[in-house]
Amino acid sequence: MTVTLTPIKAVRKPSPLSLASPRRKMSAILANLGLVVVGVCFVLPLTWVLLAAFDTRATYQTQIPRSPSLENFTAILTPELTFIPLLNSLVISLGTAALTVTAALLAAYPLSRYQSRFNKPFMYTVLFGTSLPITAIMVPVYSLFVQLNLLDSVPGTVLFMAASSLPIAIYMTKNFMDSVPISLEEAAWMDGASAMRALQSIIIPLMRPGIAVVAIFVFFQAWGNFFVPFILLLSPSKQPASISIYTFFGQYGSIAYGQLAAYSLIYAVPVMALYVLVSRGIGGSFALAGAVKG
């Protein structure tokens, strides 16, 4: 959870001496071979979804489509099945990310900038919260939502999702904020700026990449979440794509395999693109600095 946005980069040390050169060569060949085997094993399950999406007569078997077509995609691109659920996913994920990042930034400021007896126990509680099995509390959350009359409410779901990602967001944001030097703010304080003013005009611009990492991380988790909306959102018009894909294909239509694969791609590709963007661009060692500590 904590290292999510680290880019994948193969690490190669400067080769230490070349005393055992022939053996090194041998071990490099074995290593390459081993990695190829692992790669094949990991890519095999994915071949089905990639091939079936373009095959109108797809089954659960992996087969090369006889006549590749985009029919599966055109069949599922309807408002009820795809557009509205995807829009719901977007609203829920963006809402969760915005709420989480705002609350986390505000909370991180006093935790990072002032010393207080309160900080240490708070950070321990936050860290405890990052590792709670969220699945375990879904039954009580359901009862709570019934009591609060929040069942089947998108804002309610967003609030819960924000609550469950806040601990890790606060933790990451505080670490990022710690790396912004305090001296710039001192100048602002001298000039009479308030703490919030300093946060807004000095810290936030300086830690923009860090904020992006936290926001994308939260967005990512909310986008892929199935269990939380599955329990908390009941009417189809409010449900995100993860539920729509499950109810449509899991319950009624175990025949339309090709469409299932096509839907999977449409739903998964945006977040995968986002991940690549982050790990190639703003991620880098900066993401690691804030995130890997836990």
């Binding site: 190829v36 692992v38 990991f42 990512f220 894909i245 995968m272």
Partner: peptide
């Protein structure tokens, strides 16, 4: 291992992980 190969395999393994859980 070879650097390019390692990076490719890394992407494949991570690919399985960033897929939404329902997919």
């Amino acid at each position: 291992a070879n650097k390019r190969l390692a990076s490719l395999i890394g992407s494949i393994v991570v690919g399985a992980w960033i897929l939404p859980e329902i997919v």
